[in-house]
Amino acid sequence: MSAQLFLDGVHRSFDGFKAINNLTLSVDKGELRAVIGPNGAGKTTMMDIITGKTRPDGGEVLWNMSTDLTRMDEASVANLGIGRKFQKPTVFETHTVEDNIRLALKAPRGVFATLFHRTGKAEEARVTALLDQIRLTHLRAEDAANLSHGQKQWLEIGMLLAQEPDLLLVDEPAAGMTDAETMETAELLKSIAGQRTVIVVEHDMDFVRALDCRVTVLHQGSVLAEGSLDHVSARDDVIEVYLGR
């Protein structure tokens, strides 16, 4: 299998603080990967760099071993097929739930394409299917602002799915969810992996365990350990990083 995403010697500092320090990471196509690490380990900055929000000071981020993502802006990266879910759920509050999904659906993103866009049957069906999947069908005409925190999380996951990305970057999806929902989310992500590549950043160890996948531990902007959860959590340096502070 070839690497879908390859970060090579990436670094980035803010005012002298090295948020990402010579980070090298490779994720295969179709893989499900969990990234864990204490606060300030550089998880969010890593996501920002992959999605074009933050330019690294050096290093490369390769997509399919050919395209360098560091030169692209957010929209270009997204259109390559990289979707992102934020830590804090961000949905379009004044749009209805179904419009949120509809905006996310894979379709031409240009001004004139959307200006003259007509909603077709296939699109309707797709929206309905997605709403079913995230269990928000009964709220489809509701403004997104009126959803609960957990419902917003689900809506955002639904929007991510609607984009049909090749790589999903998911930042703390379980925050604000009930235990049952957390497990459901884990199942959902596992079922997506295989056809798509999924990178999950998470704090919740139960959730990571439920994902049952390869784990990367970030510390001070670079990879401290990599392997199965049991493997990494047995390592002394990982324990020290988590418990020593």
Partner: peptide
């Protein structure tokens, strides 16, 4: 139009709209 919905989306959550492409 859908473009109008994108505009409102930009107003409410600009970076989310960008990450959608």
């Amino acid at each position: 139009s859908k473009a109008g919905k994108v505009l409102v989306a930009v107003r409410d959550a600009e970076s989310r709209t960008r990450f959608m492409g």
